[in-house]
Amino acid sequence: MRLRPIPAVKPRSLEEALRYLEEGGRPLAGGTDLLVAIRKGQEKPELLVYVGELPELRILREGPEGLEIGAALTHAELLVHPATERFPILRAVLRTIGSPAIRAMGTLGGNLVTASPAGDSLVALSLLEARVRLVGPRGERELPIPEFLVGPRKTALERGELVRSVFLPYPEGHPRSFFRKVGRRRALIIAVASLGALVWVRDGRVERARLALGSVAPTVLRPRDVEEALVGRPLAPEAWEDLVPVLSAATQPISDLRATAEYRRKVAGRLLLALAEALQAGP
């Protein structure tokens, strides 16, 4: 189906943009999700507010505590910017999003707001314990990822509010990064299941671990019990095998056109072994 013209405005400032949003406008940046939803008739915005070039949303600020990323920076921009070098997990995840064309248009803020259970960047943001900075008619607020993502395709955004930036605290020390996305082909794919991890290793054993899974629960999943159970284990798949069913049990997958719930549950657990193998193989 073709698109009917939809009125759109390009505000010059964040202030102006917020006024349009208060009137019921929908923010548009890369459009890689929103335009598709409009085409399918799932979204019927009356006014599109183009925020993709607002300077306030295009910042990239390295501070002493962490990195602040403007919501309208594209995946492609973040992949090459030196400031993201300190977050290899972010790069590993962004590299798997869509195709070069999608990465050139899609933004980090957009991926957050879409809040898809399969949203790839959410895995990295969850692992990095990022905080989402929102701006709206009643000022600014900051939410950790779990509070921002309230359900599948549901966020804590209130009417008139906009994601302004994402703050990534620098992780302590030098954790090892891992990301594995399972899908039917090697690119341009929505994850069937994914596992990301930050693992701090000491003397050949897990000192601390953060795990995040995509596409196997209503939102990105942090299996805290498995994270804790990993502490002290050697980097060997055979030493982790007992946790495979535990991780599978922590998921709440659904069946859809891409895979059955049963497959997702099984594979989510097994990805733990892929992680162990990767850690064992060395950095």
Binding site: S99, R184, R185, R186, A187, I189, L257, R258
Partner: peptide
């Protein structure tokens, strides 16, 4: 035909 789109019908990409 349930999903008549290339989001659901996967043809190989260069990487495949």
């Amino acid at each position: 035909i349930l999903y008549p789109t290339f989001t659901a019908y996967h043809i190989p990409t260069t990487l495949d």
